[in-house]
Amino acid sequence: MTSEITLFVNPTAGRGRGAAAARPAARVLRDAGFRVRTVVGTDAEDAASRAKEAVAAGTAALVAVGGDGLLSLALGAVAGTRTPLGVIAVGSGNDFGRSLGLPVRAPAEAAAVIARALREDTHHAVDLGRVAGRWYGTVLATGFDSRVNDRGNRMRLPLGRFRYDLAILAELAAFRPTPYRLRLDDGPVREIEATLVAVGNSTSYGGGMRICADARLDDGLLDITVVGPCSRATLLKVFPRVYRGTHLTHPVVTSYRAGRVELDAAGLTGYADGEPLGPLPLTATAHPAALRLLAPPRKTARD
Rank of each mutant, 00 (worst) to 15 (best):
A112T: 10
A111V: 13
A21M: 08
E171I: 02
D219P: 09
R134Y: 01
A132E: 04
R156D: 04
S231R: 01
V65I: 14
Y180L: 06
P279T: 11
N153P: 07
A89E: 00
A301V: 12
T142M: 09
C212P: 00
K299H: 13
G267L: 09
Y243H: 13
R181A: 14
A258T: 08
D214R: 14
L85M: 10
L128H: 03
A20P: 02
A61S: 06
R302D: 04
V28G: 10
A64F: 02
R190N: 05
R151F: 04
T42G: 15
E193M: 14
D273K: 03
G41K: 03
L71V: 15
V78R: 01
C230K: 01
K237V: 04
Y136K: 01
A272H: 03
V148E: 00
D185W: 07
R260D: 11
L85A: 07
Y164D: 10
V139K: 03
F162V: 14
R181N: 03
T225C: 15
T203H: 04
P279I: 02
S202K: 00
F239A: 11
D68Y: 07
R183W: 07
G58R: 05
A89T: 00
G200A: 09
G207C: 10
E45S: 10
R35K: 07
L128K: 04
P229A: 14
R257T: 13
F144T: 00
